[in-house]
Write a protein that binds this DNA or RNA. Structure first.
Lengths: 204, 204
DNA sequence: GACCATTTTAAATGGTTGTTTAAATTATTC
DNA sequence: GAATAATTTAAACAACCATTTAAAATGGTC
């Protein structure tokens, strides 16, 4: 049975995740991780063999986390409009609880594209989702604008994740403090919801 | 006209820009830059005093480049709808010619927010742009949805820059090769144009 | 061609990197 | 409680880092 004190391996992994997300792979040293985990430097390699191996484990987790919620919502048995609203709300929630997640993924993949598994399992999960079925049905009966899932998803996620990925830039560009930025992000959320629904749904 | 043999200082700066944009500040070594510029390592410090100073010079240039075109279009004497179209086309052009630019800025600012000059000169330039005047006029006479410049700009730029910032992710997620991605990006461009205009312009 | 400032070079600086070692400590098994 | 295995430690490793040095090469001026 697990006791109150965490296993060293987990402590290191969690500490490493925190540091990697903040500083990226290149900006993080083994000593940073050891210090954050309050453990001896050698333990990183004792448990994970190398900084790279530890990183890849964490990167895989982070990527799964990013996609898991999205897939769950795409398959939820609710209407299209509500689904879009949920997707956007979920994105906002994620950006607030894990503000470093997106820029971390984007940047690491940008520097080393091969870190993305080359299998297309997620691709197939997306294509076979309930969301795609709903989209195709709506298009067939004329209630939905002809558009593919590949195009509509970034229209939702892009607008939201973009302002958080470039949070400091937008704070500076629009002269906002932290509170004002959050209010601004809320406004933006409602605009995105309205705009995407407005564009997707055809009324006749 | 340009001399045949470039000045060493410029050669180093251009080489450094290329490497920094690809690998980021942390991922770039002085030796990387020297190798790319085909020059001795000591010259980087001879001309720029330090890697940090060289980086800051380049970063300032890159940031200006990102904002200059946008401001010019915002002040161009053309109609709102055409202006939005031009903004989006310009964004696409930039993402194609300098695909690493946005993720580079985003990531460096994310890691070191103070690298952004704290003055709000750009902020004031945005607020006093012709675009804002046109927006306010349209809102006043009921042809444009009540929305602020801060909200509408990321609705345009976010959708487009997002798919390029996460190009490899989207290529993998949607199972696209390079050609297919460019076709996909073109589709996306048209969707964004239509969606934003559709949302912004009120017809009655 | 001697003089001087500028530019370029190879080599070295001290510090940090990821990783390893071998000894010390703790936990587990009988 | 001795023997064995698992964990943790301090120290060291070679490789690489940004930067500096001092000498060499270059170019222009008189």
């Amino acid at each position: 049975m697990r006791c109150v004190t965490e296993k060293s391996e987990d402590k290191i992994k969690e500490a490493a995740r925190r540091v990697f997300l903040k500083k990226g792979f290149d900006g993080t040293t083994s000593r940073d991780i050891a210090r954050e985990a309050d453990m001896n430097i050698a333990l990183t390699n004792y448990y994970f063999r190398s900084k790279e191996k530890l990183f890849l484990e964490i990167f895989k987790d982070v990527l799964d986390e990013y996609i898991k919620d999205m897939l769950e919502i795409l398959n939820r048995p609710i209407g299209l409009k509500e689904k879009i609203s949920e997707m956007i709300e979920n994105d906002f929630r994620m950006m607030k609880t894990e503000p470093d997640l997106i820029i971390f993924i984007m940047n690491e993949v940008h520097k080393e594209p091969d870190r993305l598994f080359s299998d297309n399992s997620i691709c197939r999960l997306l294509e076979s989702s309930l969301f795609v079925k709903q989209l195709d049905e709506g298009i067939a009966n004329g209630t939905v604008r002809p558009i593919r899932m590949e195009n509509i998803l970034p229209l939702m996620k892009g607008c939201i994740e973009f302002i958080y990925v470039g949070k400091h830039i937008h704070k500076n560009l629009f002269n906002l403090n932290d509170d004002e930025f959050e209010k601004y992000a809320q406004e933006q959320k409602e605009h995105v919801k309205a705009m995407v629904c407005n564009y997707l749904m055809l009324k006749d």
